[in-house]
Design a protein around this nucleic acid. Structure first.
Length: 633
DNA sequence: CTGCCGTTGGGATA
DNA sequence: TATCCCAACGGCAG
């Protein structure tokens, strides 16, 4: 049984589910359009099924949206402004596969190009469409777009069917069920919505409690369409076949190693069946135990119906959160959080995200600029000023610390006095970001993962954790939004809700807060792959480095470096930071930011401020000096 | 308010 | 490989 959305209410987030009537009324001779977006598949696709039912002509459409697909030569890697070429290739392969599946059913895929709303309006009109079907989408971009489309359709008297079929649950449903604690504390979720007291669960456990057993666990497998109505006459809408990369204006990148993953439903089903046949593997699956350096382990794309049977038939299986079923529920967890959180993909205006900006507004770049000068008091009137390290100059307030015993004054903090409030709070160092992005941090484990991302568009989950932690709270303290953008562009399995959710998680901005647990860019990979085979594969420049040094090649004696034909600082970069000192700095910064977030929305009074300052001064004066190793060869 | 727990930390020890 | 300690967060149940 499938669920359909009633479209009578304007508040899409809280639409009620209604059961689909088995034989929908349909005037004979009417045309339907099914609009493909995320779910590029023919199986388990209620929008397609409904569109096919009783229609004399069916138009299956995919719109190539310039927002995602327009070539952008100024981007840091080949592709459009938002999507790398791997992602675009993957999408085109998926479309080609869909087209081939549709053709087997007597139909074909119609590819149009342009702003999706405008394209659709034209098609609906030109082809005299009476019924429009597309999968419901919770992403803000589609939420806004779909409202426009639905409004147009209802004004034109077109029936719209937009089922929730991308997730196991309807996120709005979960949010409604979740008890609201105190609306005053958090503000209402959406002011335009009348009865909207619910907020998404903030922990996985509380999510599970609400979600319970997914309904599909007891429902039969979805039927597959065996024949589709023909495509009618296609005119005036710029329809083409599925284009190639070249036809879209992308040049042959000439990359030496392409992603081994092919796009398309057929490939996904093949991979799924292969995995599901191994019942032992499914039952014993434990997420954290995977080996992030085992790069030939396939990424499994999972469709729910197949999982169900295996889950039932094997007695001792693992449980959520680490089980395979648990992974699907995690997906829904992030979808729910993303749907129920305004500005989920930003720090500013995101109520579940730690606001590091208060740190900056009050203290400036405390950790990175501190101990610039030494003041030595010679007499009551004269002072010696010695510059020790001058990293940055900006208009600032100076915080002194007087040491009685040594009779010296030390500058411990520089608080930006004229700091722009729109300034982003995390590090805005583009050089550090570029080093991370372009795989030249000098940490082979990190760089190898980033090369795999560039080439394959996929890395192991824990490998993603390592590089995300390293970029943000672990070492470089670069804003998680910057890393999010890079992942979104390069990952072929990139997904708005899950990607943003995980960056919030890994940066300790939301969901997860144990900021002292930092992945070591040296020892974490070593634990799984002591020989460094993974590094040797993706960073061939290091292939002859002895395993004793391959995770820390800068510690290798010059003779070893020479023998390995890899001089550090010349053939491969020195580390951009010292992990030991940088990670301590990061912990301090997080501690400060958390402390400031505790006080009501950053409304700190002057007394609190003094206490906090003293606290951090004591804490930081014991810490080692900030170190940014220069990486000039 | 307290104590327990949290999909995946590091390091030492046995 | 398993267990303990480190240090010490927020969410949640009692």
């Amino acid at each position: 049984m499938r669920l359909s959305l009633s479209l009578s209410t304007p508040h899409s987030s809280f639409l009620r589910f209604t059961t689909l009537s088995p034989t929908p009324p349909m005037a004979s001779g009417s045309n339907s359009l099914v609009w493909f977006r995320k779910g590029i598949r023919i199986h388990d696709n209620p929008a397609l099924e409904y569109a096919a039912k009783g229609s004399s002509y069916l138009y299956p459409v995919f719109v190539i949206d310039p927002r995602y697909m327009e070539p952008d030569p100024t981007a840091f890697s080949p592709g459009s402004a938002r999507a790398g070429v791997n992602r675009i290739r993957f999408l085109l392969e998926s479309l080609a596969d869909l087209d081939s599946s549709l053709r087997k059913l007597g139909s074909r895929l119609l590819v149009a190009k342009g702003e999706p709303g405008e394209v659709l309006f034209r098609c609906l009109k030109e082809w005299d469409i009476k019924r429009l079907c597309f999968e419901y989408d919770t992403e803000p971009y589609y939420q806004a777009l779909d409202i426009k489309v639905k409004n147009y359709a209802s004004a034109a008297g077109i029936e719209v069917f937009s089922p929730v079929s991308h997730t196991l649950f309807n996120p709005a449903d979960i949010i409604q069920k979740f008890p609201s604690l105190s609306d005053d504390m958090y503000g209402s979720f959406d002011e335009t919505s009348e009865k909207n007291s619910g907020r998404p669960p903030s922990s996985y456990q509380s999510f599970l409690k609400i979600a319970g057993q997914p309904s599909w666990a007891s429902s039969p497998l979805s039927t597959t369409v065996s024949l589709l109505p023909p495509v009618g006459i296609v005119e005036n809408c710029g329809i083409s076949n599925v284009p190639t990369l070249q036809e879209l204006g992308y040049e042959d990148s000439g990359q030496d190693e392409l992603t081994p993953f092919r796009g398309g439903e057929s490939e996904a089903l093949k991979r799924l069946r292969g995995a599901m046949d191994d019942k032992e593997w499914v039952a014993k699956f434990e997420k954290p135990k995977g080996d992030p350096s085992a790069f030939l382990r396939p990424a499994t794309t999972v469709l729910s119906p197949y999982l169900k049977d295996v889950q039932k038939n094997v007695k001792s299986h693992t449980l959520p959160p680490v089980s395979l079923l648990g992974q699907l529920l995690w997906r829904d967890f992030f979808y729910t959080a993303a749907f129920g959180t305004p500005n989920f993909d930003r720090m500013n205006g995101n109520r579940i995200c730690k606001q590091m900006e208060f740190l900056r507004k009050l203290f400036g770049q405390t950790s990175f600029i501190r101990v610039l000068l030494h003041f030595e008091k010679i007499s009551s009137t004269n002072t010696n000023i010695r510059i020790e390290e001058l990293a940055h100059v900006a208009p600032c307030d100076i915080v002194f610390q007087w040491n009685k015993r040594s009779q010296t004054t030390k500058i411990t903090h520089l608080a930006m006095a004229s700091w722009d409030s729109s300034q982003i709070p995390w590090n805005v160092d583009d050089e550090l970001l570029a080093a991370w992005r372009d795989a030249r941090t000098g940490f082979p484990w990190i760089d190898a993962i980033m090369v795999q991302l560039q080439k394959w568009g996929w890395m192991h989950h824990l490998a993603r954790h390592c590089v995300a932690c390293f970029l943000t709270r672990g070492d470089l303290f670069v804003h998680w939004e910057k890393g999010r953008d890079v992942f979104e562009r390069l990952l072929i399995d990139s997904d708005w809700a899950i990607n943003n959710g995980n960056w919030l998680w890994l940066s300790c901005s939301s969901f997860f807060y144990q900021y002292n647990r930092i992945y070591s860019p040296i020892s974490f990979g070593k634990k799984y792959d002591p020989n460094g085979d993974y590094i040797r594969h993706f960073l061939p420049i290091l292939k002859d480095m002895p395993k004793e040094y391959i995770y820390e090649p800068w510690t290798a004696p010059l003779s070893i470096q020479t023998k390995a034909k890899c001089i550090i600082g010349k053939d491969y970069p020195k580390p951009v930071v010292s992990h030991d000192t940088a990670s301590k700095e990061c912990k301090n910064k997080l501690a400060e930011a958390y402390e400031l977030n505790k006080t009501r929305n950053g409304a700190v009074n002057e007394e609190d401020l003094k206490i906090l300052r003293r606290k951090f001064e004591e804490n930081q004066s014991q810490e080692p000096k900030s170190k940014r190793l220069k990486n000039k060869s």
